[in-house]
């Protein structure tokens, strides 16, 4: 005779192991990606209304609540970046003949690109304003 037993999956499965929790946090970074994208749309929209509107907007953003919120967002975005770069060698492995380029090399290369892009971004921003 057979009577297989099915164990239910608890709703809190993502708290059962740090890896699952980290995964959930990684997925939640999406909220901030959305947020920053929309925030940028707002920024440009304000800029479209003129210098004064833009100043007022930035003034509001100076509030400690906003800054804290953005710092949290930045942390999540960095988590997103870190995890995204870490998975790149899995998604798109690079091979030279039979040899696989080590994951570390691919990950480091991405961070170097990020650094270059970041410098360009800041320089452009600082130089034109």
């Amino acid at each position: 005779m057979r009577r297989p037993y099915r164990r239910p999956m608890p709703k809190t499965w993502w708290l059962k192991h740090p890896h699952y929790t980290l995964f959930m946090l990684r997925e939640l970074s999406a909220v901030f990606v959305i947020y920053f994208a929309l925030w940028t749309v707002c920024l440009v929209q304000r800029a479209g209304q003129g210098a004064e509107a833009l100043s007022r907007f930035l003034q509001t953003m100076k509030g400690p609540g906003w800054i804290l919120w953005h710092l949290i967002g930045l942390a999540f975005v960095l988590l997103h970046t870190y995890t995204w770069f870490a998975t790149a060698p899995k998604v798109m492995p690079v091979r030279r003949g039979a040899e696989k380029v080590p994951d570390g090399v691919i990950i480091a290369a991405q961070w170097i690109v990020l650094l270059i892009v970041s410098v360009i971004f800041v320089v452009l921003l600082a130089a034109t304003t």
Partner: peptide, 8 residues
């Protein structure tokens, strides 16, 4: 976003 959002 991984590339640009941190600095952005």
């Amino acid at each position: 976003t991984a590339l640009i959002l941190p600095v952005h």
